[in-house]
Amino acid sequence: MVRDITIGQYYPGKSLLHKMDPRVKIVLTLVFIVVIFLCKNFWSLGLMAAFLFGGICISGVPVKMLLKSLKAILLIIFITALLNLFYATGGKTLLDLGFAKITDKGVYTAIFMTVRISCLITGSSLMTYTTTPTMLTDAIERLLSPLKVFHIQVHTLAMMMTLALRFIPTLIEEIDKIMNAQKARGADLESGNIIDRAKALVPILVPLFVSSFRRAYELAFAMECRCYTGGNNRTRMKQMKLSLLDFGFVLGAAALLAGVILLNHFFVKLI
């Protein structure tokens, strides 16, 4: 079970989206999220959804995988839709239940919200599906580097993220081993109420912490031996260069934004 965990949720591929500079990808994803909230009617939202669908087609990420990321927040979508269904005021009454009314505006808003949240989640998971965790942390480090002016140690933060990612599989393997060792000595991890089970975790967490500290200590030695002294005077093997492709994507995003503003303007506002 431990062997096939994936860190993050990268889907390997060679599509244009995979090749996009991760910095641009992060910024454009943020822009995408903002623009989704600028949409005021079905026309502009439809444009966004169409763009997103185009992006999915380019990326080559199977739709099934994207739906899986939606499944996790199905409940949130459902509750949002339900609330909007009853609380939207105005419009024609379709159904009067006595304590609450369902109006046509309510129905539209519920559908609108469902599409909006789905686009939001699909869009951001499309980014994580097409970018490796290493590239993400690298890009975040570079995007945040202006914060150095405020004496925030961006490099240290990025290094911590990289090391955390690196050690997730190692620690999961370790937990597996400790659990088996404790089970072999008769520890009961599965039965009892919540409190019993929480108590049963203590003999797993304590050795895990001890060994993590030992690992951290050894890792620090190893890093020092490889002349690590923090972010100063450090070079990087993998340089990030903006290409024509990235400018193309930025232009596309700008066109999308313009389209949304126009559609908002020419058609009736829904919310």
Binding site: T162, A222, M237
Partner: peptide, 11 residues
């Protein structure tokens, strides 16, 4: 395990 720093071999 305690001396490999990056998530990819070449890194």
């Amino acid at each position: 395990d305690n001396q490999i720093v990056a998530t990819i071999v070449e890194d």
